[in-house]
Design a protein around this nucleic acid. Structure first.
Lengths: 138, 138
DNA sequence: TACAGGCTCATACTAAAGTACCAAATTTGC
DNA sequence: GCAAATTTGGTACTTTAGTATGAGCCTGTA
């Protein structure tokens, strides 16, 4: 943002100088003046578009922020949340168990607890609800 | 877009007139000229931002377009795609069967075919892959 | 008309997923 | 340091999910 302001300021100064010079140039008539104004308008119009695109682009890179407060509100523990993420990646209980170095029984317990906390009947429904609640990045 | 161009043109004309008038106004000195230029720059800067925001906002309303060509490429039939959508909504085979007024056996067949076509082992994995392939809106 | 493709459904399985209940080991907060 | 919460894991069971295979019914089209 600092860079943006600097570039912006530099542009304004440059244009003002340009305008000053133009007044003593060989083209010191009405056409020159209107040309300058037009140029300024067009340039700043595109500068606006450019800057806006840059800032909006950054927003798009983090489209869905995880709502950690909601995770807490739902009483979902750290480990349960880990399991939830792996579920959403399409992994089976066995695969999750291997990934987290625990037994499948443990994962089943976590999943069961998750389903209650998310008020879901199935893991697929849990995925959907979790995304709606924004506790899982889309 | 037509409206945008009209507004844009009107603004330019208005500013040119304003500038013309300012030359004969009581403030006909250097400060007036620089003020005008500054105003034009600022105004067009924000016009650029505004227009850009509008167009980008429309893009955001359709964040993930469904890639129907890819559905065809994968050989996923109409009915199978319907089932896929309901799976992604977290529904069980029985629920999908009731929703589509067919038997659970039929849904199982569709799901089995879907898993092969999406190269998935589970329905949760099918959801994830389908979203990655952009054949399901996120 | 014949035939491919899609939709339907059934049977008979096997494999996961999920529930219920219990209990021990750890971690964490006060 | 102790209570509370978390994590872990087990048994036993029910319910879904998924596979394999076969078959009848439409529909568009070569």
């Amino acid at each position: 943002m600092k860079k943006t302001i600097l570039v912006f300021s530099a542009l304004i100064i440059a244009l003002l100088i340009l305008f000053r010079l133009s007044r003593y140039s060989y083209l010191s008539n009405d056409i020159s003046v209107e040309l300058t104004i037009g140029s300024i308008a067009v340039i700043f119009f595109f500068v606006g578009i450019y800057i806006n695109k840059r800032t909006l682009h950054k927003e798009k890179l983090k489209p869905t922020q995880v709502d950690y407060k909601k995770i807490e509100q739902l009483g979902i523990s750290k480990r349960e949340y880990e399991v939830l993420i792996l579920i959403s990646k399409g992994m089976s209980n066995k695969e999750i168990a291997d990934a987290l170095f625990v037994s499948e029984s443990t994962i089943k317990t976590h999943v069961s607890n998750l389903l209650v906390k998310l008020d879901a009947q199935r893991r697929t429904q849990a995925i959907k609800k979790a995304k709606e609640l924004q506790i899982l990045a889309i």
